[in-house]
Design a binder for these strands. Structure first.
Lengths: 225, 225
DNA sequence: GCCACTAAAATTGTTTACAAATTGTGTTGC
DNA sequence: GCAACACAATTTGTAAACAATTTTAGTGGC
């Protein structure tokens, strides 16, 4: 497994997902097959598969004979996504405190530390990435593979929503929220952890504002790292 | 839209999903591309796309260079699926009772009626189909598109699990459970509805038994209607 | 100047042919 | 008789050519 090169379609999916999560790729952007095959220097077939995968994630919209576009979430989508997140993440919190053997919290602490540093350094992209990662680590600790997979999709869609309708003050206080959640989890206080998680998700959703004009849709070029 | 023929890949997906839901197609069955393209008299490309969609539903497992197989759920999968169902369906119950304008319950009643009749007639396949349909109607009434989509997948996987590990007395009492859930919903008693739903899901999960030998894997021929 | 129509270019969708891998079978050697 | 090897057949994976659709550009008329 030395020279094991990652499959090109996986690279495409990850790159686009990363670009969306970091608000480098905005809603409505067209994802042309030829463009992508050139950018990633691969076959159009592989691009096609990658786009199908992303469509499954509800992160890409596929219009017949027109092509693939980064999904533009509706107001209803936003509401539904955050409610689903609450249902799932509260359950995850309940799971984490219920294990006989304590799960290893160090990864969570490391993540929170890195998050604080990223905020202090003003590194917005890294802050967003680490904030999402926090929820995914927690989901993994929950031990339910179904909820984990769903949350992967939902955090992605959340990023997309915040990129379109979110304010600029985004997730400055997220690090504190995360801290409180972990504290309650370590104290094995499930109810408290769920309360903190609920509050945290409400903080995030509160940043969404549909009244203002949607941010303009960007071009497909900020993809390459 | 007169002679509008449904896309072949949709037909394939629906047929396989239906066959799985009705336990006509069992876990472990190989889904050969050539076989399917002959059965549905279509191109291999379309079969391929259909299988990819089913893989996304976690209902088909794709092994590189080996082909596609009906997923064999593990014990952990079963646990995770039913816990996820609980988280999602309790939230749906909460949603249904919260709308100002009462949702239209007639479809639910019709479904329950048909279910009772199917049970009385000893029509096992129809019973299973209608039982699943009940949960999907309820999900639609809940008004959350995300939860609705997830439940579509989870009910499918539940069918797969019950087909492998379930007893033969399956879902005889389901109709009564459904009745009680709707009654609580109509009374706008969210807590009661959630309690009934929780009990119902526990009844279903109780039918799962991992100790016995897994039922044998069938051949790919019981597909055609 | 603006709208409608037409033709060309670009993009998506589908089919076909080809390559790679796996499975099954038959043979040989012990 | 059994195991290991080699070859053939089947099956999946990939790429390239072809067809259909949409978009864009250009032209003519009002």
């Amino acid at each position: 497994m030395a020279g094991m090169t990652t499959a090109p379609e996986q690279i495409i999916v990850d790159s686009i997902l990363d670009a969306i999560a970091n608000h480098k790729l905005r809603a409505g952007t067209k994802l042309g097959e030829h463009s992508l095959s050139e950018i990633f220097s691969c076959n159009r077939t592989q691009v096609r598969r990658a786009l199908a995968t992303l469509t499954g994630y509800q992160v890409v919209e596929h219009i017949p004979n027109r092509g693939a576009f980064v999904t533009t979430p509706s107001e209803r989508d936003a509401r539904d996504v955050f409610q689903a997140r609450q249902a799932i993440e509260l359950t995850i919190c309940g799971n984490v405190v219920q294990f006989e053997t304590l799960p290893d919290f160090p990864p969570l602490h490391e993540n929170i530390g890195a998050e604080s540093r990223a905020i202090a350094a003003g590194n917005r992209a890294e802050t967003i990435r680490l904030s999402r990662k926090f929820h995914l680590i927690l989901a993994e600790l929950g031990g339910n593979s179904v909820l984990e997979r769903y949350l992967e999709e939902l955090t992605m869609r959340s990023s997309l929503i915040l990129g379109l309708y979110g304010g600029d003050t985004e997730s400055q206080c997220a690090s504190d929220d995360h801290c409180r959640i972990v504290a309650a989890l370590e104290a094995r206080d499930g109810a408290a952890a769920q309360a903190e998680m609920r509050a945290h998700l409400q903080h995030i959703e509160a940043e969404v504002d549909f009244t203002g004009a949607r941010k303009p849709t960007g071009a497909l070029s900020s993809l390459l790292l």
